[in-house]
């Protein structure tokens, strides 16, 4: 009977007492019969509301422009899927969408991996060493916890411009890994690692980096993966920052590139290609979220609390 989802335990480890051995009469707490169907109906209406915009975008990406500019557009897919997607990927409107996808991938992977690497190293140093300035350093990174890039865009833009990093991957990536959320997560995790492990390593004469690579890193695998999911989506979905620093269409990321595909003035937008691009922009993060759902939920709960 206790087939509540295993994930629930992960999100809320301190679950209360389980289900009673003998179930209560029908319909007292869980829904059965007509009530059950109403519950399902309510949820299905909710799911439909959530999905409708995505469905409509998909339909629009499979029909001709003519079908859209003479409203109402159809609500079932057409036969232009191949044409629209290949048109978007190969030529796009300002830049081929395939190129924008590659830029987004570099940016998202760079942010996720870069942040994980620098955070692992500094969390290791903070937890396992006593060095001068450790407290100051700790409080400095504490300050960076919640200040989004949106708040300091103008001066950050100037810094990046002075370094000649406009229209470059390093300019896209570095300012977004300058915060310490991940360092805190790893620090919390390292604090829970039993002291005996470090003690044993020290007695055996292992050097600190040996301990880091052979013991700490393998133990942190799950945390790293969970964090990777969250950071990948964060990086992929960035909008304002790429909008500012990539003036060259060949450096556009896909999420900010969509907006650039709308014509200025009174021309009608090429909706099928724009919607195909929107669908393409969603696929990688959606695949990551659905495919790594367990890690995703874990990462979400840990990085926010």
């Amino acid at each position: 009977m206790t087939d509540r989802d295993p994930l629930a335990a992960e999100v809320a480890p301190k679950r209360g007492t389980g289900r009673p051995a003998r179930p209560l009469p029908d319909g007292m707490v869980e829904r059965r019969g007509a009530g059950l169907w109403l519950t399902h109906l309510g949820l299905i209406v909710g799911v439909a509301f959530i999905f409708f915009p995505i469905w409509l975008a998909f339909v629009a990406s499979t029909v001709e422009q003519q079908a859209i500019v003479r409203p109402p557009m159809p609500l079932l897919p057409g036969d232009q899927l191949w044409e629209n997607y290949s048109r978007a990927l190969i030529s796009g409107i300002n830049a081929p969408v395939a190129l924008m996808l590659a830029n987004s991938a570099v940016m998202a992977l760079g942010i996720a991996l870069g942040k994980i690497v620098i955070s692992l190293l500094s969390a290791f140093a903070i937890v396992y060493f006593r060095f001068p300035g450790r407290r100051v350093f700790f409080w400095l990174i504490f300050l960076t916890l919640m200040l989004p890039v949106e708040v300091r865009i103008v001066p950050t833009y100037e810094v990046v411009a002075n370094f000649g990093m406009l229209n470059s991957y390093s300019g896209l990536i570095l300012p977004l890994i300058a915060s310490a959320t991940a360092t805190f997560l790893f620090r919390q995790f390292f604090m829970t690692v039993p002291d005996e492990l470090a003690e044993a390593a020290r007695v055996d004469g292992a050097r600190p980096m040996r301990f880091f690579f052979d013991i700490l890193l393998p133990m942190s695998r799950t945390n790293m993966a969970a964090l990777f999911v969250i950071l990948f989506i964060y990086g992929w979905n960035q909008y304002l920052w790429p909008l500012l620093i990539t003036t060259d269409p060949s450096m556009n990321t896909i999420v900010m590139g969509i907006r650039q595909m709308f014509p200025s003035g009174d021309d009608i937008a090429n909706w099928p290609v724009i919607m195909a691009t929107s669908i393409l922009a969603m696929i990688p993060p959606v695949v990551v979220v659905i495919g790594m759902q367990r890690l995703f939920i874990r990462g979400l709960v840990e990085s926010e609390k």
Binding site: V117, I118, S119, L121, S122, F124, A125, I126, Y128, F129, R130, F131, P132, G133, R134, F137, L140, I141, T144, L147, R152, P155, T156, E158, V159, V160, L174, P175, I177, A178, S179, A180, T183, D195, A198, E199, R202, P208, M209, F211
Partner: peptide
Amino acid sequence: VTFKGIWLPLLLVAPQIVITAVFFFYP
């Protein structure tokens, strides 16, 4: 239980310090 050393931990925190200083505290 901690490890001994001063230069190694400073080296380990250096990347984060530099990036945070240049792209966060300075701006």
